[in-house]
Design a protein around this nucleic acid. Structure first.
Lengths: 239, 239
DNA sequence: GCAAAAGTGTTTCACATACACCCATGC
DNA sequence: GCATGGGTGTATGTGAAACACTTTTGC
């Protein structure tokens, strides 16, 4: 959450007309150099002593939950047009100091296209952190991230959401590296290629990689329309 | 929700010290005669004109979300010791009249053992309804149930939660009928048997069905301990 | 015997796996 | 040439699907 999460203070940055007992927290995953990262903000007020937190905030009275998640995401990071899904609601009695605050967690997968873009915007406060070595976090945010990782690892095997982590055009080996990074496993290249290609979810760009010190690979895009059609015919994505 | 969900009234039945903007709603599924049903309560106050609702209510300040779900479930239906899992949080601005109320939905699968038991307890107010022909429901409860069904149909294929809908001891054909009822499909008996038996999740009771007008089938129980051990070795349940 | 469900056997075919191999390109 | 990744081919085994079949029991 942002620094506006200090309880019991009428901070001027706190918007009026928000739901008091409820907040939003966003888990934003990105891929950097074949490593899975998550976007965190640093709490600048002395009370939290520089701990890190998920980007989040309060929900307005006249705002749907998902809209609030999108608004907060864009306000804090500039990110928009991403896959944003409700994760879970966390409401342990003692998760927040002094008052009872329940938080609805959402998660998004950010493509490599605007990965670096985001990190640059508000350099000192927002930062990507490897999910394998997280800093100290406020409240129950470590627990929320742990749950988010579990869900992500499950979802990525059963739905084609991984493509959201890649640039628009990608190679098959980039896709394979993505699954290897998220799932912490090694995959067989020929078999992975066949499995993916048989799904008929990728459209060839008829372009090749540029500036690589080896044979250039073909580039592909994910065909969302084809996936829509296939899933209505009972097709189910499985890795 | 129960009748205590009337907004802006200081009803004497409304417990003190609850979170104002948040409620719980429970989706309780049961199997009756190979038909999937859900437990609903009738709103008795004139404002709702006899519409039906999910059993739910308010969360106390000193109560974890899941604890509240369990408490409300037991208070309203007497059901306990069931698989109870968070479904999703629903918070559309206009889902509740006059004030902003966000609700956290939980779902449970009730075994056929105490299926009839529940229906008897508070006969005129609580009732099982087929999910295929639901009555008119208050607020967004139809939407919540629709989402619950989607999740249930997905989960039942990937986790051994279906067993919660059966009596403690069951036959393989009962199990098959369960999947056929939930998924609305036909399954091949020999292949289904082999698939299930190969998982090593069922313990034979060394007992047979009683009083059936045909050859009596063997009874089995679900071996939860075996499942725990297998899933830690990377086993994943799939139908 | 007949009906109805329990339970077994067998063939077929697709597909996942494993691994060997050739291709293209920059240095 | 050689290193690096791109991309293809093939043998093998497992297992899902389809369906024919036998067994048991009540009436």
């Amino acid at each position: 959450m942002s620094t506006s999460h200090i309880p019991n203070t009428k901070s001027p940055s706190l918007p009026e007309h928000v739901i008091k007992a409820l907040s939003i927290d966003n888990l934003i995953f990105g891929l950097d150099e074949d490593e899975l990262k998550i976007l965190l903000v640093r709490q600048t007020d002395p009370m939290h002593q520089g701990k890190w937190a998920l980007p989040g905030g309060w929900i307005r009275y006249d705002e749907n939950l998902r809209d609030a998640a999108y608004r907060l995401l864009e306000e804090l990071t500039g990110i928009r047009d991403v896959y944003l899904e409700q994760l879970k609601t966390f409401g342990r009695v003692d998760r927040f100091p002094n008052e009872r605050v329940v938080t609805v967690a959402y998660y998004a997968l950010v493509s490599a296209d605007n990965f670096s873009l985001v990190a640059g915007q508000t350099a000192e406060e927002v930062n990507w952190q490897s999910v394998n070595k997280l800093p100290e976090l406020v409240y129950d945010h470590a627990e929320i991230i742990a749950h988010g990782l579990t869900v992500l690892r499950h979802q990525v095997c059963h739905q084609p959401i991984g493509f959201n982590l890649l640039p628009e055009k990608f190679t098959l080996l980039q896709l394979q590296a993505l699954y290897e990074a998220i799932l912490n496993i090694k995959l067989d290249k020929p078999n992975f290629r066949r499995k993916i290609m048989k799904m008929n979810l990728l459209s060839p760009c008829n372009e090749k990689q540029q500036g690589v010190p080896h044979r250039a690979a073909n580039l592909y895009t994910f065909d969302a329309a084809a996936y829509e059609q296939l899933s209505q015919s009972g097709f189910s994505f499985e890795i």
